[in-house]
Structure formats: structure tokens, C-alpha cells
Design a protein around this nucleic acid. Structure first.
Length: 681
RNA sequence: GGCGAGGUAGCUCAGUUGGUCAGAGCAGUGGAAUCAUAAUCCACGUGUCGGGGGUUCAAGUCCCUCCCUCGCUACCA
């Protein structure tokens, strides 16, 4: 297969806060997995990203903390760069939009459009805060709604009554920055005529979709915009923090962030060129029509990458000899929520990357997020899921397969890759399957179905365990050493393939496995076929994933702000009194209790209901010792359909409550004075 | 209000162009095995595919309508 030249970008994170898990799921982890896969596949890849460091919110943060905007962005740029690094992101460069090369790049684009006469200058009136000498965006002006009198209305709309109006109609306007009354002042801005490009943009999107199959959600967003007809968009702003408008007689105006930030992808590549001492490097990617440019983003960014950025590039290409390539695909993801709700920094809901990685290894997070990417719709990060994926999949299925194989090889084959002898049907089958997995995973990743690809990867580990079980090498080691050797040889080769195909997802672990195997990665598509050298000396196995105990997970859950969730209480389905009356709850006394043989959680109880006796089986062995139960008065469901558990008939059910301790319950005990057989109502 | 997305097994989610599509993983129950981080493997799902109507020989899969959740709504990044 011919090597592809691939340019990959991930949305530039805004340097006004720490990145959290949601950001990773949206635009960073999928891109990194894609890029790592491409590199293993032998493709020629450049992956760039960086901090987006301009815009009003940053100046607001600076004012609030009484520091300069520069200090704000320095702080978050470094913090996020570090967090990404710890997470295992492999950007070729993590740039930033405050560097000179970015300013000059953005200005170059502006000048190009200005000189062509493409930009439209429009005058307008805007609120101006004289105290800080700044024009105010709508969201920083508050006042009384002209329609309903709400005193906290925004300058152009009232959230309370939902009406929209012209900012001149707003009564008693106040600047949210200073509380001062803003004045009404004229300003002028340059507008980019998006509408002129609409037809070509629609054609572009349709063609890309036809050739490269864009995601449905992305196409939907585009259609939404096209349906409303693209309008001129202002690309300048009255502000002093940002890229200066490169015109002599213009002061205190900067390029608006949406126009300038996307160009950061280009300046980042330029910075990479400088760092590598190859000034022309960036052109080899950005200005080669054979480049496959893939932009990874979250759904909030679709319009900028499928409409605005392409329009900017088209406008440039129209006027210049040098032509930039447009995104070939924009695999936007939906959002990751956190324990059922949106991430919210202000409400303390969620966890940021730095904090997370101080507690848990990056690979466990990469795997959990990867296995649950919001590719088709929003998904959730749940602590409990993180625990079960780590313990049940990474440790039990993958980690244990590696461990049992290595332990076996060391015990029975002196820690060397044993010889593969004559193959049985079971061996042929697994080898055949082994060859298919990298191919299948590659197809899925190429289609940006990364979640599915990860599932296929873990399935190989599952298959490895099954093969190990079915082959029973612990038996053949005594009866047929040659066959045993073949089995372990094949298991080790499965591990070799696992190390390769899992590299994009859990790179730190992959490196450990390669080290244990004393082997190097191969070319992706060969990874199921290339075999370990027989006799190769294996290193000592190490535990790849430690289990996460309940305690540490509970700790994280308990840290979350307690919110009274009205929705959850209301969501309980209502029943009528008659329906409730169908359940007969009776008071009984436990007169005998014993453990159920071969079960670690069931107890067999004899209950005295006064008029009759019942036998029931209850799953409370982890919470109570049989002898402690004798004599307790409890409440039971007396008309539950009998069922057999472990061959023992259970004629009812005792009522118990969950406790804060996982798996432990507490029986509802009844006051000693209550007579046996009484019915609850 | 408008636009968009989603409502599928206890939980988290898959389900291309309508016809083995009623699924996977987890949880649960039973069993096998013991090399291994008590880790593995096998077997077991009577789900009104949000409700109601319609098109069709045939609909989670198309149309209409209603209910619920979420996102966007342009000078916001």
C-alpha cells in the first residue's frame, strides 16, 4: 500500500482553563490514536496542535486575577502542554497563537483578503465601557429587558421571556466588567463575505462526503448552516489582546478569534519547521494537493472547520499561486458528560486531566475513554465504569493473559520463546484469526470508528484466553511437551500482536509488553503475521495493571458535589395504591439460618410467620453470619412467586437496604413488640 | 420559538441502503477448569426497539403525530 501523506490537527484548546476528560474524548484521544496507528502503518504523518490564546474571556480572567493576559495564557499553555504530555499525546508540535509567526501568518491572510477588496467594512454602534476603555461584547452587557422588565437581561436578548431585541432598546444597561453604564459608540469592522462562498462550500462538503464519507452528525450541522444562508461575518474586534489588524491607520483592533485561531494550524506547522530546521517542511504538508488533511474536533467546532476555515483557504487559494489543502475529513465527536451531567468547572463537576493523572495511570484513562468515545452521540464518564474497564478488561483479560503466558513460559521453557511444532486445528484457527485482527482494526480506524477498533483489540485478548484454556498447556506440559511448546509460542505471538495493535490506545503498556517480549514493533499490517524469533529470551513479566479497589473509586465518587437531583426522585415510576396492595409484606422471625453450599453469598433461612413457616434463600451471606440472624424479626414479601436457587426452593424474599459499603446490605428489622404474621400497609 | 440529535435488555451502548436485526460488553444464575493479578472458559435474555397512527407481503429501520432528554440558536469561544 502506498504511503499516505497525512496532516492531522486537533482543535486548539482555549488557554483559559485546564483541559478535562471531555476535551480528550472529543478531539485529542481519537486523533492521537489515529496518528499513532498511521505511523505504525508506515504513513508520513504530521500532527500539530497548540493553545488558542486570544479573545475576550482571557482578558476577563486577567482582570479578575489582576495579572496580564500574557500571564494567563502562559500559565494554561504550560499546564495543558504538560497534561497532554502525561496523557501520552504525540503532537509533533504543541504551538501557541501568541507567537510571532502566528501573528504574521494571520495578518498575511487578512492583508491578502483586504488587498483583494474581498472584505466589507461596516459601521455599527456598540456599547463602550469608558472606565476600561473597551467595547463590550453582548454577553458583557446586562440591563433591564424592554419587554418583561427582567433586570438581568443580556444586551440583545432576555433569557427570562425569550424575546430578542436591538441593544438600543435595553434599559439601564450596565457593563458586567465594571458595573458602569456603558456609552453608545460608533465603531467599524471588516466582514468576511461567507455568502460568496456558499455554493462552492456546499459543493466541497458534498464532494468530500461522496469521496471520503463524512460523519452524519457533521453533515447535519453543515446542512443546518447552509439552509440558513451564510452571512457576512465580522473578522475584527475592538480589543487590544490579539493579532493586530495590519493596517496603518487602524488601532486597538484585533483579528477576531474565529478567523485567526484556525490559522493556528498553519502557524503551528511553521513552528515545527523552525524547530526541525527545515523551513520548507510545512509547505510539504499544507501546500501539497495530495495531502490528506484530517481535522479532529468536538461538535461545537464543526462550523469553523467545515465552512469558515475552508472558505478562508478558498479565498487565499483564489488569489495566490500557493494553494492550501482543505480538510478531507472532519470527524467531529459529540460530547463526553461526567456521571450523567455536563462538565462544569464552576460547579465543580468533573475532573481535569492533570488531577486525574496524579491518581491513575494514563493508559487506564486512555482505554476507558477510548472504549466509550462519543462518536455517534454523547456518552458519559462514570467512575464505576472506569473501575470495571480497568479491572475487568485491562487487568483481567489483557493483563492476566500476558501474565499467565509469561509465567508459564518462564516455568516450563526457561523464559525463551518455545519452538512451534506441528499444528493442530485449534492452532491453525487462532493463527488465522490473529492475521485478521490488525486488518480489521485498521479498517475501523480508517473509518474513524475507533471505539469499535478498540473492541476488536480487546477481543483478541479474549480469544487468547480462550485459546489458552482450550489448549490446556498445563496438561500438555506433562504429556506432550512439543504441543505445549506450540501453544505457548502462539500465545506469545498473540501478545506480540496485542502489543502492536494496542500501541495507539495504551502506548505505555504496549512499550512494557514489547520490553517483556524483548522485541520491537513491526509494520501494522504485518503484525499478525510476523513471528517472534524462536529461542528469543523473554524478560521477567511484570504486572501491567493493578486492580482499582472499591475504596479508592468510592473516594472519588464521594468527592463530587452532592446535588439534590429532583429529576431522579421524580423519575421513579408511580404506582397506584391497588398495585402496592398486591405486594404482601409480612413480619416474620428467623428461626434457622445456614450457608448454602458452594455459594459465597447465599444463606438458607427458615422464617416463622406465626401461622406458617417459610424457607427462603437470601443473598446476604456477605453481610451477615448465619448465627447472628437467629431470632431477628424481619419484613418479608410473602406472596413472591417461589424460585429455586442452587436447587433450594425460596418462598419469598426478605427486605434489606443497601449500605454505603459495596455489596453489603442491612436487613429491615422489626420492633420486638410486633406480632408475627402482621401485614405491612 | 426555530433547527438538530437521542429515547433499543437491570446498566453502558451497536444496529449500512426496510426482509435471520432483536444484538454486544458489564451485572446476574448455573457449570467447567486451576497455568494465571480468585484472574479464565462455557451455557442461559418472554426486551410492547418512547406512545399512537399510517405505508408495505414485510419496519428499531420509511411517513405523520404526540411525549421525554440533550445540544445549537451567529459577533459566543
Amino acid at each position: 500500500m502506498a504511503r499516505e501523506k497525512v496532516l492531522v490537527t486537533s482543535a486548539l484548546p482555549y488557554a483559559n482553563g485546564n483541559i478535562h476528560l471531555g476535551h480528550l474524548s472529543g478531539a485529542y484521544l481519537p486523533a492521537d490514536i489515529y496518528v499513532r496507528y498511521k505511523r505504525l502503518n508506515g504513513d508520513d504523518v504530521v500532527y500539530v496542535c497548540g493553545s488558542d490564546e486570544h479573545g475576550v474571556p482571557i482578558t476577563v480572567t486577567a482582570d479578575k486575577e489582576k495579572i496580564t493576559p500574557k500571564e494567563v495564557v502562559d500559565k494554561f499553555h504550560e499546564a495543558n502542554k504538560k497534561a497532554f504530555q502525561n496523557f501520552g499525546m504525540t503532537f509533533d508540535v504543541y504551538s501557541r497563537t501568541s507567537i510571532p509567526v502566528h501573528h504574521s501568518t494571520a495578518q498575511e491572510f487578512f492583508k491578502c483578503f483586504y488587498d483583494q477588496g474581498l472584505l466589507v467594512e461596516k459601521k455599527s454602534m456598540q456599547f463602550f465601557d469608558e472606565k476600561v476603555n473597551k467595547f463590550l461584547p453582548d454577553r458583557y452587557v446586562e440591563g433591564t429587558c424592554p419587554k418583561c422588565g427582567n433586570e438581568e437581561a443580556r444586551s440583545d436578548e432576555c433569557e427570562k421571556c425569550g424575546s430578542l431585541y436591538d441593544p438600543t432598546e435595553l434599559k439601564n444597561p450596565k457593563s458586567k466588567m465594571t458595573g458602569e453604564t456603558p456609552v453608545w459608540k460608533e465603531t467599524s469592522h471588516w466582514y468576511f463575505p461567507l455568502g460568496k462562498f456558499q455554493e462552492r462550500l456546499e459543493k466541497y462538503v458534498n464532494e468530500m462526503d461522496a469521496n471520503y464519507k463524512w460523519k452524519d452528525n457533521v453533515l447535519q450541522y453543515c446542512r443546518g448552516w447552509f439552509n440558513e444562508v451564510l452571512k457576512d461575518r465580522a473578522i475584527t474586534r475592538d480589543l487590544d489582546w490579539g493579532v493586530k489588524v495590519p493596517l496603518e491607520d487602524v488601532q486597538n483592533k484585533v483579528l477576531y478569534v474565529w478567523f485567526e485561531a484556525v490559522l493556528g494550524y498553519i502557524s503551528a506547522a511553521k513552528e515545527l519547521s523552525e524547530l526541525r530546521g527545515e523551513p520548507e517542511l510545512w509547505k510539504k504538508y499544507w501546500q501539497d494537493k495530495y495531502t490528506k488533511y484530517i481535522a479532529f474536533i468536538g461538535k461545537d467546532n464543526v462550523v469553523f472547520h467545515t465552512i469558515i476555515f475552508p472558505a478562508i483557504l478558498m479565498a487565499w487559494n483564489d488569489a495566490n499561486e500557493t494553494k492550501y489543502c482543505l480538510p478531507q475529513n472532519v470527524p467531529a465527536n459529540e460530547f463526553l458528560n461526567f456521571e450523567g451531567k455536563k462538565f462544569s468547572k464552576s460547579r465543580g463537576w468533573g475532573i481535569d486531566v492533570r488531577e486525574f493523572l496524579e491518581l491513575f495511570p494514563a493508559d487506564t484513562l486512555r482505554y476507558t475513554l477510548g472504549a466509550n468515545l462519543p462518536e455517534g452521540k454523547d456518552t458519559d464518564f462514570f467512575w464505576k465504569e472506569f473501575q470495571s474497564r480497568t479491572n475487568g478488561e485491562l487487568a483481567d483479560i489483557l493483563g492476566n493473559f500476558v501474565n499467565r503466558t509469561f509465567t508459564f513460559a518462564h516455568k516450563h521453557f526457561e523464559g525463551k520463546v518455545p519452538l512451534r511444532g506441528t499444528l493442530a486445528k485449534i492452532d491453525e484457527d487462532i493463527l488465522e484469526y490473529l492475521k485478521e485482527v490488525p486488518v480489521k482494526a485498521a479498517e475501523l480506524i480508517e473509518r474513524y470508528k475507533i471505539k469499535d477498533a478498540i473492541f476488536e483489540m480487546m477481543n483478541l485478548a479474549r480469544a487468547g484466553n480462550k485459546y489458552f484454556n482450550d489448549s490446556e498447556p498445563w496438561k500438555s506440559s506433562k504429556t506432550n511437551k512439543e504441543q505445549c511448546a506450540s501453544t505457548i509460542n502462539i500465545c506469545l505471538n498473540i501478545i506480540y500482536t496485542l502489543a502492536e495493535i494496542f500501541e495507539p490506545v495504551i502506548p505505555f503498556t504496549s512499550a512494557k509488553i514489547f520490553d517483556m517480549l524483548n522485541a520491537k514493533p513491526t509494520q501494522w499490517l504485518n503484525s499478525g503475521k510476523t513471528n517472534l524469533v524462536e529461542g528469543n529470551i523473554l524478560n521477567e513479566p511484570q504486572i501491567l495493571f493493578a486492580k482499582l479497589e472499591d475504596k479508592i473509586i468510592e473516594e472519588q465518587i464521594n468527592k463530587l458535589p452532592q446535588v439534590i437531583d429532583l429529576a431522579a426522585t421524580e423519575a421513579v415510576e408511580e404506582i397506584t395504591i391497588d398495585e402496592f396492595k398486591r405486594v404482601k409484606l409480612k413480619v416474620g422471625k428467623i428461626i434457622a439460618a445456614e450457608n448454602v453450599k458452594k455459594s459465597d453469598r447465599l444463606l438458607k433461612l427458615q422464617i416463622d410467620l406465626g401461622t406458617e413457616k417459610r424457607q427462603l434463600v437470601a443473598g446476604i451471606a456477605k453481610s451477615y453470619n448465619p448465627e447472628d440472624l437467629i431470632g431477628k424479626k424481619i419484613l418479608m414479601v410473602a406472596n413472591l412467586k417461589p424460585a429455586k436457587l442452587f436447587g433450594i426452593e425460596s418462598q419469598g424474599m426478605v427486605l434489606a437496604l443497601d449500605t454505603h459499603e459495596e455489596g453489603k446490605v442491612r436487613l429491615i428489622e422489626i420492633d420486638e413488640a410486633i406480632e408475627l404474621g402482621k401485614t405491612a400497609k
